[in-house]
Design a protein around this nucleic acid. Structure first.
Length: 217
DNA sequence: CACCAGGCAAGTA
DNA sequence: TACTTGCATGGT
């Protein structure tokens, strides 16, 4: 059977559409992707809202405001000095290489775009792929901590499988559809917020039917 | 009190 | 290549 598809259908059946990414512009999505690194989304929402309230959620403003000010506004998301540095770097790169426009950046072909994103400080594989999928709408599967955890707990993958291999486990069995990958990743996060955490709730997990025996913690 | 949250970079061996 | 460490706030 097609495990990827079966899992997706079970998650969809349980929770339906998740309406990701929760952002109203490509830039907002990209800023959110930096801010959410190893940080809970609720803290990111506060930081994003603050940037909106201060009316600086645009490339020119973020590039030009003092670092100390940006740091104070995104403090709730943690690692605020690094993240401030990364965000300003991102905005300066957009200005200097892409006419200050995310649209211009997204003219790049997917593979080149990924390499460009990975060359930015503060953008690793997951952040790059999130931006590719949710801002540039490319059919790229995002692997994050939730994905790793539920795959290894259900014995769908070995413990220390590479990012690339994990991603392939999905894409190999699914049609190359960005809307599908969008919903799938969001549903995995929805799953991860309740199940497969430090305290297992395997009895009510929508994936408990999976032959693959969940490993108790 | 300890542990965790939608990672990444830089350093070491 | 494969590990280790620093980064930091706020919720549970």
């Amino acid at each position: 059977m097609n495990v990827s598809k079966t899992v997706y259908e079970a998650l969809w059946q349980k929770w339906g559409p998740q309406y990701w990414w929760p952002a109203t512009s490509q830039l907002e999505m990209m800023i959110g992707a930096i801010l959410t690194q190893n940080t809970s989304w609720s803290q990111v929402e506060k930081a994003i809202q603050r940037l909106k309230d201060e009316k600086v959620l645009d490339i020119q403003s973020l590039a030009s405001i003092p670092s100390s000010q940006l740091e104070s506004w995104i403090k709730s998301a943690g690692y605020y000095r690094q993240k401030s540095f990364y965000i300003k770097g991102m905005c300066w790169t957009l200005i200097e290489k892409f006419k200050g426009s995310t649209k211009e950046l997204f003219l790049l072909e997917t593979h080149e775009l990924r390499n460009e994103l990975l060359s930015w400080k503060g953008v690793g594989p997951e952040t790059a792929d999130s931006i590719l999928l949710y801002a540039a709408q490319r059919p790229v599967f995002v692997v994050d901590a939730y994905t790793r955890r539920f795959m290894s707990r259900h014995r769908w993958s070995p413990e220390n499988e590479s990012y690339e291999k994990l991603s392939e486990r999905f894409t190999a069995e699914l049609e190359k559809d960005h809307a599908l990958y969008n919903e799938y990743h969001a549903l995995i996060v929805r799953l991860g917020k309740t199940y497969c955490r430090s305290k297992p709730h395997c009895e009510s997990c929508p994936l408990k039917f999976l032959l693959i025996h969940p490993v108790s913690v």
